[in-house]
Design a protein around this nucleic acid. Structure first.
Lengths: 189, 189
DNA sequence: GTCTATAGCGCGATAGAC
DNA sequence: GTCTATCGCGCTATAGAC
């Protein structure tokens, strides 16, 4: 197998195992066994276990950052910006199911790139909140505590990875529409 | 120190460390060091690391189950039942901040009690969904996909432990009211 | 009830043959 | 590029002195 393909394969299998047991409980022997080689052979393709985790988390975090920047630079209404953010999460989560658990629950095991990750995460939340705050100011959203609104929507979107694998009977477009309705308009008649 | 108090103290410190690094990354030496004794001395109070995790998770899961049963057996409207569920999560999370991360992210490391935990969790979700389904049938809630509604609300409530420690400036009663509004009525004007 | 010492094991990573 | 063998370390848990 070609070197770069093998590297990607290792990262894919590692991400799946990290999802099931968490970074610390997964051994290099576990990863090697999934790939179908011996642990020592992994080191022809990657430098360390830490490097695998870093790659999984940082590439996802940067994908979210880029998506958010595109939305911020658009001329959409607040509602449409929020719908685009919801779509961003559904899209990235659908295409990277196995990596999303690491992003959400194993980021604290990052070493060299921990500060960088926390910076990306903080900026993402601030940008998300600025969309909500502007929506309130422009009277597109209800008056209310924007921190609570942010927390509620973002918690749901960050949990999509737990839920999407079990709900393949709901199509992605339907999910986007239904989730937007619930998150933006509520459930009470 | 009295035996039972020391045991509770060990569980408290362990829960805090599990929150910060996850069960697998926390060592018995870490826990002992937090308590102020040596690792070997822990075993005068607990039988194993696994026993600590089991205690943290199962006692919280049973507290949620009991709270849900009280709500199910009440004669409240759907809206008031949902508000009670929101209060249940705020209440338990406020009183057990350090244990909630284990409940949410370390349950897969349970051994003997894993099946029991999964049973409690499944029943909780089914009961929560039945409240929503009845609300739709009685026309108190909008027509829509009750799985998406359940997922959205429950994801937010299960993430409270991440968020509450940073938002002590919001009083518990205010949080309950604001969160109910956002989750039940949405944010769009 | 806490300590020191340590058993027994599995970990991440490396060396070197093929 | 994969293998076998192994290093050096840290882990959970136990034994036994005080």
């Amino acid at each position: 197998m070609k070197h770069q393909d093998r590297k990607k394969e290792i990262i894919q299998y590692a991400a799946k195992l990290f999802t099931e047991k968490g970074y610390s409980a997964v051994t290099m022997r576990d990863i090697a066994s999934s790939v179908g080689i011996k642990a020592a052979s992994l080191y022809n393709h990657i430098n360390s276990k830490q490097e695998i985790l870093t790659y999984i988390i940082i590439s996802l975090a940067e994908e979210f950052t880029q998506g958010m920047n595109r939305i911020l630079n658009s001329n959409l209404s607040t509602i449409d910006k929020l719908k685009r953010v919801i779509d961003l999460h559904i899209h990235i989560t659908s295409n990277n199911q196995s990596g999303m658990a690491s992003l959400n629950t194993d980021w604290m095991h990052l070493e060299d790139k921990l500060k960088y990750y926390l910076e990306l995460r903080k900026n993402y939340e601030q940008n998300f909140k600025s969309i909500i705050d502007k929506g309130i100011a422009k009277n597109e959203l209800k008056q209310g505590n924007s921190e609570v609104m942010l927390f509620s929507i973002l918690s749901t979107l960050r949990s999509l990875y737990i839920w999407i694998p079990n709900k393949e009977h709901i199509l992605k477009d339907q999910l986007s529409e239904q989730l937007s309705t619930v998150l933006l308009n509520g459930i009470v008649k």
